[in-house]
């Protein structure tokens, strides 16, 4: 049994939130640079230039990259032989989140669903964090974190297709979601696709797909091939940076797939804007 202190988790979560809200990760930055180099449309090239400058300013002056500092989303792998001393793991993640948002001068964006009032619970603002736990063997603690903005979340969609729809049905559903979204999710975007499982599995997989490093290939040959086809189809839509008409609409398409019921083919599309603030760390 390994022991880990509550405060150590709080501090690590807080530090990673502040850093990642002000420093665009290397993969997203490289993808934006590549889009800037390759874009033919002058209006979109100007937008991409502004985004690269923005990343520079945010990092050098420790300012939030975007005013929508998002909801804090975590995927956490907890070892069965790990014990948190001084509190619960969930509280530690929530406290780290509240502190990170406050000390980083981030915007608290969590509200009550019906009154829309900004929500402050006993730990602080921007809570509860959205945490997906996975219990694994060993005594490790692995935390993946992303700040998820509202603009790109609002255009995300899930459905359950008939199995006969197959590969082509999935591709046309994803393409339709991105086509309808147009300029709204702040393109260039990263497209997360979750296939299979139950309805909620597909949605969670589509979220988790956004955490994969941009520029890596899918180990599954079938999915890798679908990612390539979707990249071409989405970039052929002509949406471009901020929807102003251009070639670079998607920076990446990431697909995760799970086995599913013989009667169904769930598909979920989760869209991530260019401000892809994500990180992972082990404690």
């Amino acid at each position: 049994m390994r022991e880990i202190k509550y405060e150590d988790i709080v501090k690590a979560v807080k530090d990673h939130i502040i850093y990642s809200g002000t420093n665009l990760p290397k993969d997203a930055l490289a993808a934006l640079n590549k889009a800037y180099d390759e874009e033919e449309s002058p209006v979109c090239k100007e937008v991409l230039k502004q985004l690269l400058e923005n990343a520079d300013i945010a990092s050098s002056e420790a300012r939030p990259l975007c005013q929508d500092t998002g909801l804090a989303v975590f995927f956490v792998k907890v070892g069965e032989d790990l014990k948190v001393v001084g509190g619960t793991l969930k509280d530690a993640i929530n406290e780290g989140t509240a502190k990170g948002y406050e000390e980083g001068y981030f915007r608290a964006s969590t509200c009550v669903w019906n009154t829309r009032e900004n929500l402050k619970d006993k730990i602080g603002y921007n809570l509860p964090a959205i945490v997906h736990f996975d219990l694994v063997a060993g005594d490790g603690l692995e935390i993946e974190y992303a700040a998820k903005g509202g603009g790109s979340e609002n255009v995300s969609r899930a459905t359950v297709l008939p199995p006969a729809a197959g590969r082509d049905g999935i591709i046309s559903f994803v393409k339709e979601v991105i086509s309808n979204a147009g300029p709204n999710p702040c393109p260039p975007i990263i497209v997360g696709v979750g296939i299979g499982g139950t309805f909620e599995n597909a949605a969670i997989s589509s979220k988790h797909a956004l955490f994969r490093t941009v520029g890596t290939t899918n180990k599954d040959a079938v999915l890798n091939d679908m990612e390539g086809e979707l990249m071409t189809k989405i970039n052929n839509l002509g949406i471009g940076a901020m929807g102003m008409g251009g070639r670079e609409t998607a920076l990446a398409v990431h697909i995760e797939a799970n086995p599913c019921h013989i009667a169904s083919l769930p598909v979920s599309v989760n869209v991530q804007c260019h401000s892809s603030r994500h990180t992972s760390f082990k404690l």
């Binding site: 937008v47 502004q50 985004l51 400058e53 923005n54 300013i57 945010a58 002056e61 300012r63 939030p64 990259l65 975007c66 005013q67 929508d68 903005g149 603009g151 300029p183 702040c186 901020m242 102003m244 804007c273 260019h274 401000s275």
Partner: peptide, 13 residues
Amino acid sequence: FGATGGAGALLAR
């Protein structure tokens, strides 16, 4: 008018 979404640090200047 459209402003560049996600360029919050740049626009604040």
